[in-house]
């Protein structure tokens, strides 16, 4: 297959299928995330890039034999390794008997929320999640460092003119998404605050919220969206998210506990856990939303710049 567009779509389908597989494997939170990220955001980003770089691939293989040897060797090693793995679904394998039972049996008393994944994520292994937020923050900053372009102020008439012409072309989809976007944002907030009880949480909510805004900016133009949500504003929000998460930890330090020890936040440990989880999920949500929007904006701005330059070059030539 040398049409990259088709390949990217297939990758999206693969992600969606693995998300359904995760549901079958009882991993609802993961499935939710995979559907939002793998099938949603990453497909979208890849498509944006393909529009800039061309969708045909050179069919010549690079080092097929080397690759084949490496792959066969690694695969063989992995295959060899699987023979002693505990069987699929067996309840007596070590992972179900060593660390996990405490999460399953005691988390309801220690943390007090029904979704165990959230309690492990946000309390027992809160530092991993902090790391995850920092990873995505790093990616945002890195992409900004790579792609950000100096701003040129656009004049309002031009925007309005472009807007009108687009209005004709995308009438139906514009109206439908105008109806849908409030619901998408509302759903994101639901996911954000319902993460304690069902699947969901800051990360998924952030991605959905960002998807809503990205949809808007795709249909109504970047410049209009930028009027509401400017680049500096998103940057600040993304920093605030990380800081909010971290300061929950620092506050618990000041209260005399260890870092991320939510028990000391309030006098009642379980209520303290609730508060801590709520706050850090909010931090995650802020950072993820803003970084996703930031990434998309930077990609799209770069694309606009490229097109602008292309038109300019053609004018010069003719």
């Amino acid at each position: 297959m040398n049409d990259l567009f088709a390949v990217v779509m297939l990758l999206g389908i693969y992600s969606l299928l693995s998300a359904s597989f995760f549901v079958a494997m009882d991993a609802v939170d993961v499935a939710f995330t995979e559907a939002a990220v793998g099938a949603g955001i990453s497909t979208l980003l890849m498509l944006v890039v393909i529009t800039m770089t061309g969708r045909k691939e050179n069919t010549k293989r690079h080092k097929p034999f080397l690759a084949l040897i490496v792959v066969i060797f690694t695969g063989g090693l992995l295959l060899y390794g699987t023979f002693d793995i505990p069987h699929f679904g067996s309840a007596d394998s070590p992972i179900h008997n060593h660390v996990t039972p405490r999460y399953i049996n005691d988390s309801i008393n220690e943390i007090g929320i029904p979704n165990i994944v959230t309690s492990v994520l946000a309390s027992y292994r809160a530092f991993d999640t902090f790391g995850e937020v920092v990873v995505i923050f790093t990616a945002g900053i890195g992409i900004m460092a790579l792609l950000s372009v100096a701003h040129h102020s656009e004049d309002n008439h031009k925007i309005a003119a472009v807007n009108d012409s687009m209005h004709e072309r995308y009438l139906v989809i514009r109206i439908v998404s105008k109806i849908l976007i409030p619901f998408i944002l509302l759903f994101a907030l639901y996911v954000q605050f319902h993460g304690d009880f069902g699947p969901g949480g800051g990360f998924q909510a952030g991605v959905i919220f960002a998807a809503g805004i990205i949809l808007y900016s795709m249909l109504f133009g970047l410049s209009i969206t930028r009027k509401v949500i400017s680049q500096p504003f998103i940057q600040i929000i993304s920093a605030v998210g990380v800081l909010l998460y971290g300061s929950v930890g620092l506050v618990s330090l000041l209260q005399g506990g260890n870092f991320f020890d939510y028990n000391v936040l309030l006098t009642d440990p379980v209520a303290g856990q609730h508060l801590g989880i709520l706050l850090i999920e909010l931090g995650v949500g802020c950072t993820v939303t803003s970084v996703m929007i930031m990434i998309f904006f930077n990609f799209a701005e770069r694309r606009e710049l490229q097109q602008h330059n292309n038109i300019h070059n053609k004018d010069l030539e003719s």
Binding site: V30, T33, Y103, R125, D128
Partner: peptide
């Protein structure tokens, strides 16, 4: 088992980044 789920949530984020 919830623990692998938590790990993979983190890993998905790392992957998209």
């Amino acid at each position: 088992n919830p623990l692998p789920h938590v790990l993979i949530l983190t890993a998905i984020v790392v992957g998209i980044s």
